[in-house]
Design a protein around this nucleic acid. Sequence first.
DNA 1: AGACTGGGGTTACCGCAAGTAACATGCACG
DNA 2: CGTGCATGTTACTTGCGGTAACCCCAGTCT
Lengths: 213, 213
Amino acid sequence: MDTTQRTEQQRSADRRRRELLEAADRVVLRDGPGASMNAIAAEAGITKPILYRHFGDKGGLYAALAKRHTDALLDSLRAALDAPAERRERVEATLDTYLAAIEARPQVYRFLMHPAEGAPSEQGFDVGKHSAPLLRRMGEELAQVIEDRLDLGPGSHRLARVWGHGIVGMMHAAGDWWLGERPCDRAELVRSLADLLWGRLAAAGDKVGGPGF
Amino acid sequence: MDTTQRTEQQRSADRRRRELLEAADRVVLRDGPGASMNAIAAEAGITKPILYRHFGDKGGLYAALAKRHTDALLDSLRAALDAPAERRERVEATLDTYLAAIEARPQVYRFLMHPAEGAPSEQGFDVGKHSAPLLRRMGEELAQVIEDRLDLGPGSHRLARVWGHGIVGMMHAAGDWWLGERPCDRAELVRSLADLLWGRLAAAGDKVGGPGF
DNA sequence: AGACTGGGGTTACCGCAAGTAACATGCACG
DNA sequence: CGTGCATGTTACTTGCGGTAACCCCAGTCT
């Protein structure tokens, strides 16, 4: 029959695709995002054209690769966000989950967020197509949670989205900086960020001798 | 004399360098960050090796280009940050200044923040070297202002830096998203972000029927 | 005047990576 | 058996960043 045959082929193709992604993952994590298609193909034990048959172009491969990691990270974040606890605890847990993830696998993180670093040669290949989606998806998910759970009055939809993207951006930038400089431990960073979100900036007093910020 | 001669040559070289940067600017703003060195050289009316004599490599050129715009933007931001007004007004003015800048010249913004988009071919050329510095510099400057002006108690230095980078990241991510979707006007975005910083997230009530976010 | 030096310029090339065309091979099905 | 068809290969083209070698002309020293 045609259907079984096609599903069979489909399954085999999918398995192959997954194997190729694993190989690409290893190479990218080892050599950085500048890994060449030749190198990836070699790691997978095959040659370039096969990669192109499966993923179209380098952008397709990297997008597929990014999607895997992005999905995994988003799953963890959802879990932290949905835990049964007070709001502040949830916020801290979510921040901590994200930061723990990027701390544990900085290579993956760097690939997702700064896919151009390391010296790829990209012709007709838009790197921004990868990092943006992760931030965007995180922002949208958070916005949804905020809108669902919080009573924000009129304009809550737009407000929630602004906040979702804003908070994600805050987390991202602070995490990126922290990962580079390691100025404090994770717990302190989490606490500081949560404090910021809890309005400590507005509540702080002016320093003596000058107008407040 | 040697000194006058050298300064004379220096001046001429500097002028040339500025001309080249202008040309590069035009090309990058027209073709996106994927502009080739050949294209830039052609725009400047010369050929590649001259660019390399002046800037070393593509990274050097792009770094110089980015520095110009970054410095300009940072000047505007400093002005808004130093204005004589209440804290909330300053925060809103700073946010608005940033957003107005990226709204007015999205091409410049895209180049500074997502320099890889458009398809550059970068061999041994680290794009991350451009976008990061802008965010980092903004974060550090803001941190400095916060630390100088606010009384944050013990650990104020680290706290200010976390907040500086976090707030900049919030502004950046929200701005990036807003620039793409234009879900509301600038004033509303500014107000929403300021509200977030002023702790409205923590203050909001739970929605009926479920545990709070 | 004529050789000498040095900054600004060019052509022609290298290396390398993305992407592609054309050819080979193994395996199901009529 | 032969005919698709998926899977794989070699060998190529194109286009980029980057460089080596050469050129030219203004001014200077003798």
